[in-house]
């Protein structure tokens, strides 16, 4: 399983891929890269049961790279694990926290305690609308594929072990007990992590993202 092979930053792409694989060159063709480097390279490897990578909605959107989406949509035999968040506001706040700290992932045993953040309500709403829009699109774009909807809150956080078993079953790979390596960034209630939480609540009130 590779990481974000279409990440904006070259270093992050390299990290997502691991040595000695060939990293995606900015401006080159995304579809060819998937075909020649991610999937086909391992075609003859009997030890490999499945191969995949992680892709955010907004990745591979630049010229060249964007053909990766066409490749994925056209190859209906690919299985899609669609990871979604029920609480998009939480996702946005984690994103703002990670952006501020420069740390996008944290290991299980390292507790993070950042200062509460100010949230720009316009940016927040635009982010939520965008995810809402792309999530709906992904459901439609991959409706002919086999898709496993994996909820961050209801599956990964609630019961990581059983979620992983289900994913492995979906992918048709022999089940392994997988350890939890990463923890979510902000574990404190969102109200305490956002200085202007009331303002955010009011801004979202008459929208699809209203806080219940």
């Amino acid at each position: 399983m590779y990481g974000e092979v279409f990440q904006d930053e070259l270093d992050a792409r390299r990290e997502g891929l691991g040595f000695p694989n060939e990293v995606f060159e900015t401006g080159s063709d995304g579809a060819s890269y998937l075909s020649n480097n991610i999937y086909e390279e391992c075609a003859g490897d009997d030890e490999l049961f499945a191969i995949g990578f992680k892709l955010f909605y907004m990745q591979a959107r630049e010229p060249g790279a964007r053909t990766a989406w066409r490749y994925l949509m056209h190859h209906r035999n690919l299985r899609i694990v669609h990871l979604t968040r029920d609480n998009l506001l939480e996702a946005f706040v984690s994103f703002v926290e990670a952006r501020a700290s420069g740390r996008w992932l944290s290991e299980v045993d390292k507790l993070l305690r950042g200062a509460p953040m100010h949230v720009d309500t316009d940016e927040c709403l635009a982010f939520l609308d965008q995810i809402y829009s792309y999530r709906g699109w992904a459901n439609q774009a991959f409706c002919q594929h086999q898709v496993f909807e994996l909820s961050y809150e209801r599956h990964l956080i609630a019961d990581f072990g059983s979620a992983m078993t289900q994913v492995q079953k979906f992918l048709g790979v022999p089940p392994l007990r997988l350890p939890v390596l990463l923890r979510k960034q902000g574990t404190a209630p969102i109200e305490t992590r956002v200085i202007n939480f009331d303002e955010v609540r009011r801004a979202l009130r008459h929208t699809i993202h209203a806080i219940k």
């Binding site: 709403l125 635009a126 939520l128 609308d129 965008q130 809402y132 929208t207 699809i208």
Partner: peptide, 17 residues
């Protein structure tokens, strides 16, 4: 332009709901 599209699509659904 994408922001305009996203905003309208999300709000349209909200209105219907």
């Amino acid at each position: 332009l994408a922001e305009f599209f996203d905003r309208v699509v999300a709000k349209r659904y909200w209105v219907r709901l």
